[in-house]
């Protein structure tokens, strides 16, 4: 797997896939996609980078430990459910706000926060497994 072509192309491929994963994540509210599949695409992107360049550059690029990313995702997803408490509606009820930024209305919701949490859990957990499998010194 250590060909020059692969090593040269891998960073571009990774960047493209990460961008695509975000697109899939945001599209998932009404169309096919969502946090889980987006997270899988992002994790594959990181895995490709890891196969091409080794796991140290991946860990360096991620900055946070993958498990910490997963924990943050779990925290956000749970928080998305608890926001409902303030609004006196049951757990996990979707709540929306429509702030407008430079005249453009941006719909934001707890559903999106939850999906983003799922995205982070999947990225963190799968990357953590992939990096552990890629490691050679046990």
């Amino acid at each position: 797997m250590n060909t020059v072509i692969f090593r040269t192309l891998a960073p571009f491929l990774t960047a493209l896939m990460l961008l695509f994963s975000l697109f899939v994540l945001l599209r998932g509210h009404n169309e096919p996609g969502g946090g889980f599949i987006g997270g899988l695409i992002a994790a594959s992107a990181l895995a490709i980078y890891g196969i091409a360049r080794g796991i140290r550059p991946v860990r360096h690029a991620l900055w946070f430990h993958p498990m910490t990313i997963a924990a943050t995702g779990l925290f956000l997803a749970c928080l998305a459910g608890l926001v409902s408490m303030v609004a006196a509606v049951p757990f996990m009820t979707g709540l929306w706000i429509y702030p407008s930024l430079f005249g453009v209305e941006i719909p934001l919701s707890t559903v999106m926060l939850f999906d983003f949490g799922v995205y982070l859990v999947v990225v963190g957990a799968i990357t953590s497994i992939a990096l552990a499998l890629e490691r050679e010194d046990f």
């Binding site: 779990l74 925290f75 608890l82 408490m85 006196a88 757990f91």
Partner: peptide
Amino acid sequence: LVLAPAPLDSWLVVLPVAWCLLAGAVLLM
């Protein structure tokens, strides 16, 4: 939909689970 507001004591039903997940996530971080 259930349109009646959810009183705080009905939240006790789900809070033990949600609390464990939240606290577990923080401990993992």
